[in-house]
Design a binder for these strands. Structure first.
Length: 620
DNA sequence: TTAGGGTTAG
C-alpha cells in the first residue's frame, strides 16, 4: 500500500493503487454517527475547512465509508467545491443513488446539466439497485429539460412507470416540466391529467409551457383555473402570469395582478418586480414601468437592464443611458445584456462617440466577445453612419449566428450597399438558415438596386422554398421596389390586388413615391385613402403638403392645413413642415409675399424656418 | 422550473 504524506490541504491525495477496502467500519471516531453529525453541521455552516479535515482524518484512519463519503460530497457541493466532490466521487469504490444524486444535483444547480447527465452515464447501474430512485430521477428529468434531451427524458418516463416512481408527486412534476420544455404540450398534458387536485407547481409548468410555445389561449385557461382554484400562488406563478399579461397585452389582468401583489403584501421578489417593469414597458407605458422600477425594494442588474431596455425600446434613449450610469454608481456591474441595451440607445441617438466609448468599455470588461454585444455594436455603428466600423466588428466576431448575419445584411442595405448585402446573404446561406428578418434585408437591398425581377423571385420562390411566409414588411419592400423603378401604377395595383393587411407605412411608401415622381393624380387619390386610414398621422400631412407645394397647388396646401386644424394635430412635429412647404413655394416664386403673410396668419412660421437661404442651401 | 438583451419594411 502506498500512502503519500502529508496529505495536501488535509485532503486525500489518493492513492489509486490502494487495494482497498478504503471504506472500513468506523472505529477511530467514537462512532460513525459522530462523524456524520459533524459533517451535517459543517455542511449547514458551510465550513469547508473543517469538512476537509474530517475527510483527511477519515482517510488516514481508513474509516471513510460510503455514507460518510456521501455526506462529504454533499458538503463539498454545498460549499461550491464541485471539483472536490467530483474527485471524491471518482475514487469511491462503492457508490449508490445518494452519492450519484448529490453530485448530479450539485452540477445541475450550478448550471451544468450536461455534466449531471454525464455523471449518471458514468455510473455502473449495478450500483443503483433497481435503477435511479425518485430523487435521482427528478434531477435527471430536470437536467434533460434543461438541455432539451427528449429521448433521455422519455427513458426516464419509462423507468418511472415501470418502477412505480411515477406515484411521487415531484417525479410527476419533473416529468411535466421536462415535456413542456422538450416536446409539444400534448405529452405534458397527458402527465398533467394524472396529477390529482390543483398542484401549483404543475400549473406553473403548464402555464410556462404554453407561454413558451406561444399558445396564449391555453395559457389563459390555465390562469383561469389558478384564479378559481388556487388560493396561494408562489413567486413563479406571479412571474408566469405577468409574462402572459405582457404577451397578450391583457391590461386588465396585469393591473389586477400588480395590485394584488401590492395588496397582499406578497414580498416583492426581484423576479416579479422585473416582470412588472417589463410588462408596463412592453405595453408602451414607460411612465408606469418607471414608477414600478423606482418602487422596487429589491433591485439587481436584471431589473436595471429591464428598465433601461424599456426606455430604449420606447425611444427614450437618453434616459436609458442615464440609467446605465446610475446603475454603476449604485454598484451594479453591467452584463452583456446591459451593454447591448446601452449600445442600442446610442444607436437610437446616432451617438457615435458614446458608442465608441461603450465599445472600449465592453472590451475592457471582457464582454465584447459576446454575440449579443457584437450585434449591438454592428447596429450602433451602422445607425451612426459608420458602415466600415460595423463591417469590422462583424468580421472580427468569433462566431456568427443568424441574427448577426441579418444585422450586417440590413446594415449594408441601409447604407445603399445593396450588392454587398446580397453577397453577404449568399455567404450566409452556407452557414445558416435564413429567417423572416433576413428577407426583409434582402428585399430592401433589391429595392435599392431596382432589381424588381430578383425581388419577385425571392418573394414568390425562394422564401416559399425555405418555408417562410412573406409578411407585410416584405410586401412593403416590394412596393418600394416598384416605386423605385418608377412603376407607380404597378405599385398601386400590387397594393390593391394583393391580399395583405397593408399598414400606414406601406401606403405612405406609395404616397411618398408619388411626391418624388410628381405623380400628383395618384398622389391625391392615395393621400385621401391614407388620411382615412389614419387621420392623426402627422407624417401623412408632411408628405401631402410637400407634394402640393411641389405641384404649385396652394389650395391643396391650405386644405391640408385646414384638416390639421380640424384634427387638432398642431402639436405634431409635422406642423413646422407645412410651414416649410409654404416657404418652399415662396422661395420658388409660386406664392407671393401676400400669400406668405396669409399663411403666417394660418401658421406662424418659427424663425428657423423663415430663412429661405437655408432651404436653398439644403438643395431644395 | 421563475425576471432583462441583440436583427424588421418607408
Amino acid at each position: 500500500m502506498t500512502v503519500r504524506r502529508p496529505y495536501a490541504n488535509g485532503f486525500a491525495l489518493l492513492i489509486h493503487s490502494m487495494p482497498s477496502p478504503l471504506f472500513q467500519p468506523a472505529q477511530a471516531f467514537a462512532s460513525r454517527r459522530n462523524s456524520v453529525d459533524l459533517l451535517k453541521m459543517f455542511t449547514e455552516t458551510r465550513n469547508l475547512n473543517l469538512g476537509k479535515a474530517i475527510n483527511a482524518h477519515l482517510i488516514r484512519a481508513f474509516q471513510l465509508d460510503l455514507i460518510q463519503a456521501n455526506y462529504l460530497i454533499n458538503l463539498y457541493v454545498k460549499c461550491g467545491q464541485l471539483h472536490l466532490a467530483r474527485r471524491l466521487f471518482d475514487i469511491m469504490p462503492e457508490r449508490n443513488n445518494v452519492s450519484g444524486n448529490a453530485l448530479m444535483a450539485g452540477y445541475f444547480q450550478a448550471g451544468f446539466p450536461l455534466e449531471a447527465l454525464g455523471v449518471f452515464k458514468s455510473m455502473d447501474l449495478s450500483q443503483l439497485s433497481g435503477g435511479p430512485n425518485e430523487y435521482m430521477l427528478t434531477t435527471l428529468l430536470a437536467s434533460c429539460a434543461e438541455v432539451r434531451a427528449l429521448e433521455e427524458g422519455r427513458q426516464c418516463h419509462d423507468h418511472a412507470l415501470k418502477s412505480g416512481l411515477v406515484s411521487h408527486s415531484y417525479v410527476r412534476n419533473a416529468l411535466l416540466h421536462m415535456y413542456s420544455k422538450c416536446s409539444g404540450m400534448e405529452d405534458a398534458l397527458q402527465v398533467f391529467r394524472t396529477i390529482p387536485g390543483f398542484d401549483i407547481l404543475a400549473l406553473n409548468s403548464m402555464l410556462n409551457g404554453f407561454l413558451e410555445h406561444g399558445q396564449l389561449n391555453y395559457a389563459m385557461e390555465v390562469v383561469s383555473g389558478m384564479v378559481k382554484e388556487v388560493a396561494r400562488w408562489d413567486h413563479i406563478s406571479y412571474v408566469a402570469v405577468l409574462g402572459l399579461c405582457t404577451d397578450s397585452k391583457d391590461l386588465n389582468l396585469g393591473r389586477q395582478i400588480h395590485s394584488q401583489i401590492l395588496r397582499r403584501g406578497v414580498e416583492f421578489s426581484v423576479f416579479a418586480g422585473s416582470a412588472i417593469v417589463d410588462m408596463y414597458g412592453k405595453w408602451g407605458d414607460v411612465k408606469s414601468s418607471r414608477r414600478a422600477f423606482d418602487g422596487l425594494l429589491n433591485k439587481n442588474v436584471v431589473s436595471w437592464t429591464a428598465v433601461m431596455a424599456i426606455c430604449a425600446q420606447n425611444g427614450c434613449f437618453e434616459e436609458a443611458l442615464k440609467l446605465f450610469l446610475e446603475m454603476q454608481l449604485v454598484g451594479f456591474r453591467p452584463t452583456e445584456f446591459t451593454y447591448a441595451v446601452a449600445l442600442n440607445a446610442c444607436a437610437g441617438l446616432s451617438a457615435l462617440k458614446n458608442g465608441d466609448a461603450l465599445n472600449a468599455h465592453a472590451e475592457k470588461s471582457g464582454y465584447k466577445e459576446h454575440l449579443t454585444v457584437g450585434i449591438a455594436l454592428i447596429n450602433m455603428y451602422s445607425k451612426s453612419g459608420s458602415i466600415d466600423d460595423a463591417k469590422r466588428v462583424f468580421t472580427s466576431m468569433p462566431h456568427h449566428d443568424i441574427i448577426s448575419w441579418n444585422s450586417i445584411i440590413t446594415a449594408y442595405s441601409h447604407h445603399g450597399l445593396a450588392n454587398e448585402a446580397l453577397e453577404a446573404f449568399h455567404e450566409m446561406l452556407k452557414e445558416e438558415v435564413p429567417t423572416y428578418v433576413t428577407f426583409v434585408g434582402v428585399l430592401s437591398a433589391c429595392a435599392h438596386l431596382g432589381l424588381v425581377d430578383e425581388g419577385f423571385y425571392y418573394l414568390n420562390h425562394f422564401m416559399r422554398e425555405v418555408g417562410i411566409r412573406p409578411g407585410v414588411e416584405h410586401y412593403t419592400c416590394m412596393v418600394a421596389m416598384l416605386c423605385r423603378a418608377g412603376l407607380l401604377d404597378e405599385a398601386d395595383g400590387f397594393m390593391r390586388y394583393t391580399c395583405v393587411d397593408w399598414d400606414i407605412v406601406a401606403w405612405r411608401t406609395l404616397l411618398s413615391a408619388c411626391q418624388v415622381h410628381r405623380n400628383y393624380g395618384l398622389g391625391q387619390k392615395v393621400g385621401e385613402h391614407v388620411l382615412k386610414l389614419d387621420p392623426d398621422d402627422g407624417g401623412t400631412y408632411i408628405l401631402l403638403s410637400n407634394m402640393y407645394a411641389k405641384a404649385n397647388r396652394w389650395d391643396g396646401v391650405v386644405n391640408i392645413r385646414k384638416l390639421m386644424r380640424e384634427k387638432d394635430i398642431k402639436k405634431e412635429p409635422g406642423v413646422s413642415w407645412i410651414q416649410t412647404a409654404i416657404l418652399k413655394m415662396v422661395v420658388c416664386g409660386c406664392v407671393d409675399n401676400h400669400e406668405k403673410r396669409k399663411s403666417e396668419k394660418l401658421a406662424p412660421l418659427p424663425s428657423y424656418n423663415l430663412d429661405a437661404s437655408v432651404l436653398l442651401r439644403s438643395g431644395f
